[in-house]
Design a protein around this nucleic acid. Structure first.
Lengths: 100, 100
DNA sequence: CAGACATATGCCAATCAGGGAATATGACTG
DNA sequence: CAGTCATATTCCCTGATTGGCATATGTCTG
């Protein structure tokens, strides 16, 4: 599943927000999100497969942490669009249309 | 449909990329994408409802252009994650874990 | 107004993501 | 090794999304 698809679900975005605070066991997130454990586990799997999180095994627990690479790629994807809202450049669209 | 969901489809991302070049009639995009016209029209509808594109009516044609606001919001959403890949800050995770 | 063109919409079938409940796996404890 | 805790996986169901095709809407031309 692509980064975009993985981010399309609000629960998964909440998980990423939690992980900004640092590495956490899956159970912590079940509590924090107040969702059924299997549900959280499934979302974590999607995030894992999308490369957005990294797991470290610690005894019976799985410690999840953020893997920022895909988000950095998203940041890069956004690059060519930034000129469109770099305030003074509202005129860009007009410019491009003129040169069409 | 949220920005994230709208961006989850590759065809829709292709449409946005085309619109970076400037305002275009829907038909142009049908040609450029080599997809059936109704398919493109439906994707344009999703983008419209997500606020990612703007339509201007020109006789029988609809001229589509990029509306960057939702992308600017995505850029803002990304902000708190940027520290995670601002190279030297690989140590941030460690730092946060220490202070846990 | 008839016809042609540009685009949108409706309908249908297929596929897919998500939730819930039950169960499996794997690690530690005594 | 029996039991317990933490987590993952499976199964089933429902609702949403996508593609294809046919058709509708709206605009212009003559």
């Amino acid at each position: 599943m692509s980064t975009f698809e993985a981010l399309a679900d609000p629960t998964r975005r909440n998980i990423l927000a939690l992980l900004r605070l640092g590495e956490r066991p899956a159970g912590d997130m079940v509590d924090a999100l107040a969702l059924p454990q299997p549900s959280v586990s499934k979302h974590l799997r999607v995030l894992r497969e999308a490369g957005l999180v990294h797991v470290r095994i610690d005894g019976p627990r799985r410690l999840y942490s953020l893997d920022p690479k895909p988000l950095a790629e998203l940041d890069a994807w956004l690059s060519p669009y930034r000129v469109f809202w770099a305030n003074k450049l509202d005129a860009l669209g007009d410019h491009l249309n003129r040169s069409d």
